[in-house]
């Protein structure tokens, strides 16, 4: 994360993205998003608009999308706010890519629960496929990032690829998922354990067993 920085300002960047404007459909959406907030508080719409812009850039470049500086300036202009404030938001949140990414942005969670459940193995599997942290593969398909907790600890380890989570991973299931994506097919999202639907207990209840049938007050036992 410490090497996270915006794509440097250059004449090429300006030439490519300086003319960024919403597509007709997104212009409509942007208007609707801004209308959600009181008049004069349009700055509040900065996060959804940045997301929308990132998606539009993604659609144009056939990637997950990212935010070039001219695009941030465009959003700042629309919301009548200083660019530095937009840049603060964009650099703060990991969901905004401030450098170009590949078609699939593989975000491997490496926080404690995932690590205990084998995220090192997941990371190793990614490396084995030629992916490196912070880099995009030569075919432009995969960008690898290590992220902090994504809130899927009950089905760790997990990766997030673009808008979907893939959970209960092993090296094999991850390889399968990446192969499917590369082939242009949509693999099953969510947990990869056969028989598991969401994050219900695997096998029998191991905790809070008294709660299985009816509500139970544990407080006296603490």
């Amino acid at each position: 994360m410490s090497d996270r920085h915006p794509e440097p300002d250059s004449s090429e960047l300006r030439a490519r993205w300086g003319g960024f404007v919403w597509t007709a459909e997104n212009a409509e959406k942007a208007k609707e998003i801004i209308a959600r907030y009181p008049a004069g508080r349009q700055r509040s719409a900065v996060m959804p608009l940045l997301d929308l812009a990132q998606r539009q850039v993604g659609a144009e470049t056939q990637t997950q999308g990212w935010l070039p500086l001219p695009v941030m300036e465009y959003v700042a202009g629309q919301l009548e706010m200083p660019v530095i404030r937009v840049l603060e938001v964009a650099t703060f949140y990991m969901m905004y890519n401030i450098q170009p990414v590949g078609r699939f942005h593989v975000q491997v969670c490496g926080t404690t629960p995932c690590m205990l459940r084998g995220s090192d193995e997941i990371m190793a599997a990614c490396h084995k496929r030629g992916m490196h942290l912070g880099h995009t593969t030569d075919d432009g398909l995969f960008t690898l990032t290590e992220v902090e907790c994504m809130g899927n600890c009950a089905s760790a380890p997990m990766v997030q690829i673009n808008d979907d989570n893939y959970e209960d991973l092993t090296a094999e299931s991850l390889n399968h998922i990446l192969d499917e994506l590369a082939a242009g097919r949509q693999p099953k999202t969510g947990t990869q354990l056969p028989g598991r639907h969401t994050v219900e207990p695997v096998g029998a209840l191991s905790t809070l067993t008294a709660m299985a049938e009816a509500n139970h007050d544990y407080r006296g036992e603490w």
């Binding site: 300002d9 200083p82 530095i84 404030r85 840049l87 603060e88 650099t91 703060f92």
Partner: peptide, 20 residues
């Protein structure tokens, strides 16, 4: 009254800078 200076990034990596 001019938003010149901002804090980019987060946590330990926060950096104070002007735009570009």
């Amino acid at each position: 009254g001019v938003d010149e200076i901002g804090a980019l990034y987060r946590g330990e990596n926060m950096q104070i800078t002007t735009y570009l």
